[in-house]
Simulated scan of single mutants.
Amino acid sequence: MRCRAVFLDGGGVIVLPHGDLVRAALSGMGITIDASLVPRAHYWAVRQIDRVLADSAPIVYLRTFCRALGVPPRRIEDAIRALSHLADRSRSGEILWSQATPQAVETIKALRSAGIAVVVVTNSDGHAAENLRDAGVCQTTPGPGATVTDIVDSGRVGSEKPDTGIFTIALERAGVEPEAVVHVGDMVSTDVIGATAAGIIPVHLDPARRCRDRDHRHIRALGSIWRHVVPWDRFPRGPAAR
C-alpha cells in the first residue's frame, strides 16, 4: 500500500525549546547555561524518561531537562519554576517550543508537494496550533511556515499518546487507513507504543542514537523520513536500518 500520510509529533520532532528563551529565563534566576546544549538536553531527557517508562508529565520532563542542562541540583526547583512560567504563554508572552528542528519546515513542504498528507499529532495544552503558527513553523492554512493537513492536539481532543484515541482522530481527519501511515516521534513510551497499538508504523527520531531497541525503525534527522516513505514497497512493516 502506498504511504498516504505522515504523522509528526510536535515537541522534539518539528520544534524544540528555544535555546535563547531558556537561557534568558534561567539567567533571571541567576542560573547560567549554554543555550547550544538545549537540543541535546531535550533528547537526553526524553530518553531517560523512556528508559524507565516514567510519567512524561511536563514537571517530570522539566526536571530531567534541567539536569541535562547541567543545572546544579540545589537549583533544580528554581529552574523548574522559571521554565514553567516561560512555558505558559499567557504569563510569559513567549512561546517556549518555538525553535524549528533542522529540516522540519523543508521536509513538511516536500512531503506535501509529493501528495502526502502531514498531520501533527501532539500531546499539548490545547494551544499547539496557534503556537506553531505564531512561531512560523507550520499551520493548517497558508502562512509563514509549512502548511500541514491538520494539527491534532491532545488538549483539544481529550486523548493523549500513547492512547490510540488521538491516532484514531488523526486518521479520520486525514482520511487514511493506519496501514498507509508512518508516525514520527521522539519517545518510545508515547509515540512508538501508541502508534504501534493504533496499527501505524512508528519511526523513532533519535538524533544521538541512544535507543538500542530493534523492534522499531529509527532516523537521526527528519529529512531521513523519505527512506520510510518512498518507495513504500521497499520497506515492509517492521524494523529498518537507522
Score class of each variant (00 low, 15 high):
Q99A: 13
I166C: 09
M29L: 12
G30L: 14
P102I: 09
G28M: 10
D78K: 10
D191Y: 07
H42V: 02
A68V: 04
A79N: 11
I76D: 00
L96E: 09
L132E: 00
H204G: 04
T196P: 01
V52Q: 07
L21H: 15
V118S: 10
R220Y: 07
S84D: 08
A208T: 03
E177H: 12
T141R: 13
P39R: 05
E130C: 06
L132Q: 04
K161V: 07
T164P: 04
G70S: 14
A208W: 15
Q48M: 06
V184K: 07
A129F: 00
H127I: 02
R237A: 05
G28F: 08
E179I: 06
P239I: 05
G30P: 14
V119C: 07
R217E: 01
P72Y: 06
S92V: 09
G238M: 06
S159P: 05
V229W: 03
V229M: 07
E77H: 12
I151C: 02
R217K: 11
P58A: 01
I31H: 13
A146C: 07
R156I: 00
H216T: 08
G238D: 06
W97P: 00
D9F: 02
A221H: 13
G199S: 10
V52A: 09
A208E: 13
A146F: 04
V60I: 08
V71F: 10
A197W: 00
P239S: 08
P58K: 03
G70V: 12
D125K: 11
W97L: 15
G238Y: 05
S56E: 02
G30S: 13
V230T: 15
G158V: 04
H18F: 04
D125G: 13
W232V: 14
V192E: 05
R173S: 11
D215K: 12
H85Q: 14
E177I: 00
G115R: 14
A221I: 01
R23K: 14
R75W: 09
A146K: 10
A117K: 15
D50H: 11
I166P: 00
P239L: 06
